[in-house]
Design a protein around this nucleic acid. Structure first.
Lengths: 103, 103
DNA sequence: ATCGAAGTTCGACAAACGTCGTACTATGGA
DNA sequence: TCCATAGTACGACGTTTGTCGAACTTCGAT
């Protein structure tokens, strides 16, 4: 198998508190913005952030468990993508609203 | 004067991180939901929550400083309202998306 | 088979956070 | 004027959170 899924909540298991809490941290919001500009996904190592690799992995885990991102394995890489469809279905407008912030 | 404004950030001073962090706390999200159903606003004492009055006031302060709610004085009461227009202008869809969560 | 690169997990630590009780201010009514 | 009510401010306390380094796993390449 060339690609495998990392465990994540089903759409109906996603809680809005967890999503908002996940998005409310500066580093994680930066990650989400980067993912929004990279539809194909980004690996943990490609994220350019002022934190160590273990901290990046930690934040990605928070985002994944909240239901914000999806992660699949490609070789030794873990590619994360935004769960746009699920979030838009659950909270229509939320993600676009967040991403429209003029930063 | 029968009504006075409590200090709050201008629209252009509102930061999305602060808004999301404010919304990402269960008690505060409950407050926001209550305010969404009460266009005329709610006083601190009218909020029915499993926390003490000082904690309620604390959460309202967080929401006010983040730019989520507006508070004006009416006698001995402080009436808080959702800053729907400002939030919709800054992050179109965010608030409606959050409020559409099936709870 | 061994090595290196990519991520994750774990433990530790400091900072931030949510909560409470108390003290305080201010407003309106008796 | 005095008092009760509404809300805020402050200090304290325990919990959660963000961060790091080190150890570990897994995969691909040499």
């Amino acid at each position: 198998m060339t690609s495998k899924q990392v465990p994540q909540p089903e759409r109906d298991e996603i809680r809005v508190e967890a999503v908002l809490q996940a998005l409310g941290e500066p580093v994680r919001l930066t990650i989400v913005r980067a993912l929004a500009d990279a539809p194909a996904g980004i690996s943990c190592g490609e994220l350019e952030l002022p934190v160590t690799a273990s901290t990046r992995a930690h934040h990605l885990k928070i985002l994944r468990e909240a239901g914000v991102v999806s992660t699949h394995v490609e070789g030794t890489r873990r590619i994360s993508t935004l769960r746009r469809d699920d979030l838009e279905a659950l909270y229509p407008g939320l993600l676009t609203g967040v991403l429209s912030a003029k930063q």
